[in-house]
Write a protein that binds this DNA or RNA. Structure first.
Lengths: 252, 252
DNA sequence: CGCTTAGTTGACTCTTCTCAAAAGCAGTGG
DNA sequence: CCACTGCTTTTGAGAAGAGTCAACTAAGCG
């Protein structure tokens, strides 16, 4: 049973929308054809591909990215366990961007036909998966605001707030800490800033005692303080408020 | 028949994906319950709303936006005739952003139940509308890249390329010209830059003879030159290539 | 013609980028 | 165990891009 547990993160995420029944969970678990392991830096899907499987990220972090003609790489989204990489591209002629493994990753493959059947036959799951794509879009909008309008310190602070909540939603956070398996270069490519400036911005957040880091583990000692600092409003993540109330009140 | 012609732009847009039959067109046209006119500056939907109609923009430009606590407004998307404002929010608890009329607008209201029936009963239209939302998302990703990684001149140039193609796709361009009913302040709020810098950037594009403006009409004398300058690749708009080949070859 | 809004300009400040080099850290082979 | 290598993080310093403030011009409107 190499596909055991592939869907725990996904199921955990979907619960923030609507609790799936045991039957739903089983359906999901059975839909995984096989799993693949990738090393950091390899591509899960490349621009121009027309995948015949939907990719579900089971372990590790991945990112949507594009490379500009001037050589600059831009990361447009982070994918963490429980995220589907490409439910949405079944319709489009080809991928207009690539998805790369940012850390070592484990990916579950679900045949498109299986997903389609599943969504036809199961109203709850169909709505839950649909909800997931809408949240992805809302996150994208928020990132656009972040990159366009927030100063560097708030920009990075906002991202850290988001990833703390998202990792917590799939059971990957430990208290106020989570693993951020990215280099500063990758963070810079995400937030549209230079490596040097990202480095200094992180130092700024540390010196303000808003975050602490230990290797690639980030700890937010006082989530409320960071959220206030970064003007972070979790509405756009569309999780039920009570799910992360604990975080909001951590140092109430 | 006040709703006559409400759907021409939408139908024209969908043709870039798959040609709807006459019957499909009629179904769409009949789904409009009523139309509303709005003046520039008024909101079509506000953050927190849970609309019971889907809004189809028939005339004018609108924009998705958020206001940050520091008072900065950020425009995250432009909506032009043929664009649906909120197919996607039927599932979410509430709007996480507002949509405002950037110019005088005419909006058609389609009851959610009608849209739902229509998508259940008509495979072609369902897929076409679904395609529309995927393109919206692709545009959002491209804007994130633009704001994050392109220098000011390319940033604005890229936006103008996009809007030329999008207006052409719904029959609103005349040759290489289109009406851009926005103030420089609104453009600045879109691209994440200051009003003054937007003004100078537009001057830069004009002095490089990449665009000319006359009131709110923008003319791209040489689309290929501007596309090259702005590193614009229309792939992300997911229109069939032949639809805008004319533009690409304008001064071949 | 006066009023209001939008576009333009100049001067100055501050953020952010670039270049360049040093320091830290993990893996490899001798 | 240590030197070596490659990658990531950190630092310094000058240059360029972008923001702010404030004033002035242009255009639309009653």
């Amino acid at each position: 049973m190499s596909t055991d547990g592939c869907c725990t993160a996904l199921i955990r995420k979907l619960q923030h929308f609507e609790k799936p029944s045991d039957e739903d969970k089983e359906l999901l678990a059975n839909s995984v054809a096989r799993t693949v392991e990738l090393i950091a830096g390899s591509d899960i899907i490349e621009q121009g591909d027309k995948p015949d499987h939907v990719h579900l990220l089971v372990e590790g972090w991945a990112g949507r990215y594009k490379i500009l003609p001037n050589g600059r790489r831009n990361i447009m989204a982070y994918l963490i366990p429980g995220d589907l990489c490409d439910v949405n591209v079944a319709l489009l002629e080809e991928m207009d961007h690539s998805i790369g493994a940012l850390s070592g990753c484990k990916v579950a493959l679900i045949p498109i036909a299986t997903i389609r059947n599943l969504m036809d036959q199961n109203r709850t799951l169909a709505r839950a998966l649909w909800w997931g794509t809408l949240v992805d879009e809302a996150v994208l909008r928020e990132w656009l605001v972040t990159v366009g309008s927030r100063p560097a310190l708030q920009r990075v602070g906002h991202l850290i707030c988001e990833m703390l909540i998202r990792t917590e939603a799939v059971g990957l956070a430990r208290g106020n800490s989570f693993d951020l398996p990215l280099t500063q270069q990758e963070l810079a490519d995400t937030m549209g800033m230079s490596l040097v400036h990202m480095n200094r911005t992180l130092q700024g957040l540390r010196s303000r005692e808003l975050i602490t880091t230990n290797g690639h583990t980030v700890t937010v000692e006082n989530p409320r303080a960071l959220m206030k600092f970064a003007a972070f409003d979790p509405l756009y993540l569309h999780q039920q408020a009570h799910k992360f109330r604990s975080l909001m009140q951590a140092v109430a």
